[in-house]
């Protein structure tokens, strides 16, 4: 099948490249662009480890075709923060002990961001509900919810600028 040219914004930078129509977005990120922060836990839409933000919404990138990224604004964990400046959610995850093996963490962070960006002060139940598509086998979720709640109490996850 013929390749298709797609354009999208990835972590704030415009990207333009050619992709096969059957290529999955998670494979584009991990294999082609070397952005391995996005994880694959199941490849079937069940675990949320591959969560990225598409126009601010949390999406399982293992179920998304790369061509569908065309024209959208996409954020992966690499776009959240860096060594010099962690995102408040990243800081809270560390401070609250919400990271054990860390395999669910990138997806959790992005799901949390997608909640706080539209609802800066969610209740605990709303947080639990919103991240219920992100499986974590290590933490029992308690400290993850604590961390998100902490950021929500501090005034939400809106950008630091």
């Amino acid at each position: 099948m013929s390749k298709r040219m797609i354009k999208f914004v990835l972590n704030g930078k415009p990207i333009e490249l050619e992709v096969e129509p059957e290529l999955l977005f998670v494979d584009l990120l991990r294999e082609r662009l070397g952005l391995t922060g996005t994880k694959v836990g199941c490849g079937e839409g069940d675990c949320g480890a591959c969560t990225v933000l598409v126009d601010g919404k949390n999406v399982n990138s293992c179920l998304m075709l790369a061509v569908k990224a065309d024209g959208h604004d996409i954020v992966t964990v690499e776009g959240l923060g860096d060594y010099d400046k962690l995102h408040p959610l990243q800081e809270a995850f560390i401070a609250e002990g919400a990271v054990q093996c860390g395999f669910c963490t990138p997806g959790m962070l992005l799901s949390a961001k997608s909640l706080l960006d539209v609802n800066p002060h969610p209740k605990r139940e709303e947080i639990s509900r919103h991240i219920s598509g992100n499986l974590c086998r290590c933490t029992g979720y308690t400290k993850i919810v604590n961390a998100i709640e902490k950021v929500a109490c501090q005034g939400g996850g809106e950008d630091r600028e």
Binding site: G97, Q100, R137, C138, T139, G140, Y141, T142, K143
Partner: peptide
Amino acid sequence: QNVEGQIEGGCA
């Protein structure tokens, strides 16, 4: 904190 993390994860 890590002990608590083990307890919480274990309970789950």
